[in-house]
């Protein structure tokens, strides 16, 4: 996807390169930024949490392995996992192809929606991701 590097407006990001894509008031999807996926290179494995798990902001929710490196995934906010993108097990390359779209990792129900305000806007994130 040619414009897969463009960060959608409803996305907030962390310094550790995870994003939160807010679809309605207390539901959101989490993944990693296109920049992070580019840096990691072709992703070959992903470990994701179980549905129903509650994870605190800053704790790991999984890990990804690319051809060249491994990386832990950190929760951008405290939340309960309500869905997992199982398609990534078979096609982890979706993260490289379209990280903000089909490459989403987990869907969450936010424990404390105010935490969203602590995350970076796309413009702020673009300052660190280059």
């Amino acid at each position: 996807m040619a414009d897969s590097h463009i960060i959608p407006d409803n996305v907030k990001l962390t310094e550790t390169h995870e994003y939160l894509r807010i679809d309605d008031d207390d539901r959101a999807r989490v993944g990693i930024s296109h920049f992070a996926a580019e840096q990691l290179g072709d992703i070959v494995f992903i470990e994701l949490p179980e549905v129903g798990q509650r994870i605190e902001k800053g704790d790991t929710f999984g890990s990804i392995e690319s051809v060249k490196a491994a990386s832990d995934l950190y929760m951008p906010v405290s939340a309960e996992v309500v869905a997992v993108n199982t398609q990534l097990t078979e096609e982890p390359e979706l993260i490289n192809d379209n990280s903000y779209g089909d490459g989403w990792m987990i869907e969450i129900s936010l424990s404390n929606p105010d935490e969203v305000n602590e995350l970076m806007t796309p413009a702020q994130y673009s300052q660190i991701a280059q």
């Binding site: 290179g41 072709d42 070959v44 051809v67 390359e93 490289n96």
Partner: peptide, 8 residues
């Protein structure tokens, strides 16, 4: 060149 398309 690290890769031209996908590594796999």
């Amino acid at each position: 060149p690290l890769q031209f398309s996908k590594v796999k």
